[in-house]
């Protein structure tokens, strides 16, 4: 706990990055993408990595690894993310979600054999994912420019700061000794391949069936992000349904 508090210091160093981003609320379609040129290059890189490595790896993974093991790896990786989510729910003042997430972690870590199974979902206790990017949103920080990150995909300046802080604040990262931690990194890596398989329909539609996959992913990411931080667009910011009634 003391270590966690100490690490907030790092966060305070990062905050000035965000304050330059302004605080205006935005229409649903608003896109602030001053780094579009670089972002598009990173998108091309990500798409190439997906085409050359990730998509074939996930197909092979699906063919070789039985579904039960795929599920167990996915459950495990997701379970390990829960303590960090408890912290973020708490920081956001969402105590009910924090308690439900802690309960989910407890159930799945015990009854679920260290997270290999997901009995909590059988009780209707589904995941309530959140991250430090959302915590920053709760404290009023603007999302800032859109960013596409290598390997990680769509984000914003606020979201990227959140990823860094989540990594540093993660209680498991702090308390787990080194060899186990390396095993966990491997687990997360394998889970990314599994996720690529689970969401193959969605990823394929976005990356390979869109005419401009960068723009399609960007608008979907931003709208979903704004929905998750519960910014309900103002009525005047919604488009006029009759604007093109020509």
């Amino acid at each position: 706990m003391f270590r966690a508090i100490h690490q907030i210091g790092i966060l305070l160093l990062l905050l000035p990055l965000l304050s330059a981003c302004g605080t205006d609320t935005a229409p649903a379609d608003r896109i602030f993408d001053p780094f579009e040129k670089t972002n598009r290059q990173i998108h091309a890189l990500n798409k190439a990595i997906d085409g050359i490595a990730l998509a074939p790896a996930s197909t092979a993974y699906g063919a070789v690894v039985p579904e039960e093991i795929h599920d167990a790896i996915d459950n495990s990786a997701n379970n390990l993310a829960l303590p960090g989510q408890v912290i973020n729910h708490t920081l956001q003042g969402e105590l009910e979600n924090a308690i439900l997430t802690a309960l989910r972690f407890t159930l799945n870590s015990t009854l679920g054999f260290a997270g290999l199974f997901d009995p909590a979902s059988d009780f209707g206790l589904f995941a309530l994912p959140t991250d430090f990017g959302e915590t920053l949103a709760v404290y009023g920080f603007a999302e800032g420019p859109y960013l596409e990150l290598p390997l990680l995909g769509g984000s914003t300046v606020r979201g990227t700061v959140g990823i860094v802080v989540d990594f540093v604040l993660d209680p498991l990262g702090v308390y787990i000794p080194t060899p186990t931690r390396e095993y966990l990194f491997l687990l997360k890596g394998v889970d990314i391949i599994g996720d690529r398989l689970t969401y193959s329909d969605l990823v394929d539609v976005l990356l390979y069936e869109s005419s401009d996959s960068y723009a399609s992913q960007r608008i979907a990411y931003l709208q979903n992000l704004r929905y998750n931080v519960e910014i309900e667009p103002e009525i005047e910011d919604l488009e006029d349904p009759f604007a093109f009634d020509y």
Binding site: A28, S210, S211, D212, A215, S216, I219, Q223, N224, Y227
Partner: peptide, 15 residues
């Protein structure tokens, strides 16, 4: 989940 079909299609048709 917050993602508007019209926005997605406008992006798609425009591109």
């Amino acid at each position: 989940e917050g993602i508007s079909m019209i926005s997605s299609e406008r992006t798609e048709i425009g591109a």
